[in-house]
């Protein structure tokens, strides 16, 4: 999880790294945009070999939700 959060945080340019905790509701962050979403989907595909649909990402509220989704698909 720690490594995943680091990879997740890397996709953002303005948000402070401390913000990214398992409970973080990332869609509500000011920096969030569909382009951030694309960057996250791309990172997940490359680093974890898992394909996630944009709709699935939308349904993830917290970073932990996304982490669990990836685990369930690996």
């Amino acid at each position: 999880m720690e490594e995943f959060i680091k990879n997740f945080a890397n996709q953002w340019d303005e948000t402070e790294p401390e913000v990214f905790t398992p409970e973080c509701a990332f869609h509500e962050l000011e920096e969030w945009s569909s382009l951030t979403g694309l960057a996250i989907l791309n990172m997940v595909a490359k680093k974890y070999g898992v394909k996630i649909a944009p709709m699935e990402l939308k349904n993830c509220v917290t970073i932990a939700d996304l982490y669990n989704l990836i685990q369930s698909k690996q």
Partner: peptide, 9 residues
């Protein structure tokens, strides 16, 4: 393909 420029490999 949908990839942000900064992630292109």
């Amino acid at each position: 393909s949908r990839v942000p420029c900064k992630a292109i490999g």
